[in-house]
């Protein structure tokens, strides 16, 4: 399954919706969305992962990239990650640095 990705920034909140699989063959697409969001200098990045079925380290690298690009003050929220994708985030200690939530309310 390919990766479908959409991004918008509103009132300082950047939202990226990921659907499908993130591996190294498509991680540039994910990176481009983060770069595009970063240019609008958001104060928060919210990533919706409830429809993400696979994430390799290539995807984790983009989360690190996002934090380093946007700055430590920009909080990252990961919404709806479950099962093995959530396990991968936890296994890598990412749940210590991003807000992992089941849902998100504006």
């Amino acid at each position: 399954m390919a990766l479908n990705i959409s991004m918008d920034v509103n009132n300082g909140v950047a939202k990226i919706v990921l659907e499908g699989e993130v591996d190294a063959s498509v991680s540039d697409k994910f990176k481009e969305a983060v770069e595009k969001a970063a240019r609008q200098k958001p104060n928060r990045l919210v990533m919706f992962m409830d429809k993400l079925t696979f994430m390799a380290s290539a995807g984790l690298r983009i989360l690190i990239f996002a934090k380093q690009k946007m700055g430590a003050d920009v909080n990252i929220y990961v919404i709806g990650a479950s099962g093995p994708v959530l396990n991968t985030l936890k296994m890598s200690g990412f749940d210590r640095s991003v807000y992992v939530q089941a849902s998100y309310v504006d």
Partner: peptide
């Protein structure tokens, strides 16, 4: 924290 991490190195770990 992510801002202090190297970008790579997780693949073999996983």
């Amino acid at each position: 924290p992510l801002e202090e991490r190297p970008i790579g190195g997780l693949g073999v770990y996983l």
